[in-house]
């Protein structure tokens, strides 16, 4: 892949209310958290980024495991 030295994105954001991946980083987002917002891109402010990150931080990322395994 093009970005072998980079970690996969933990968070993928798409603006404008469309819920598609549109051929973007399909390999790297295997375990990414997806966040869709209705905000149109020119209206996307730092507060919107903060909201997306807070939403991401409240999710449980299991990577195929079960909750109990993550807690141990």
């Amino acid at each position: 892949m093009c970005l072998n030295d980079l970690p996969d994105p933990e968070l993928l954001i798409r603006t404008s209310g469309e819920c598609r991946l549109s051929n973007f980083m399909l390999w790297q987002i295997a375990y990414s958290e997806l966040y869709f917002t209705n905000k149109l891109w020119p209206d996307f402010k730092k507060e919107d980024l903060h909201e997306a990150i807070i939403d991401y931080q409240n999710r449980e990322r299991r990577f195929g495991q079960v909750s109990e395994q993550l807690k141990s």
Partner: peptide, 29 residues
């Protein structure tokens, strides 16, 4: 405030964005 609710030690290292809606935004304006 929103930014204070972020756990700095658990921020994503890599964020990817599909920047959609420029055309619609222009149309609305």
């Amino acid at each position: 405030s929103l930014v204070d609710q972020i756990n700095r030690s658990k921020c994503p290292e890599h964020i990817a964005i599909i920047m959609d809606g420029n055309g619609r935004w222009a149309q609305q304006h």
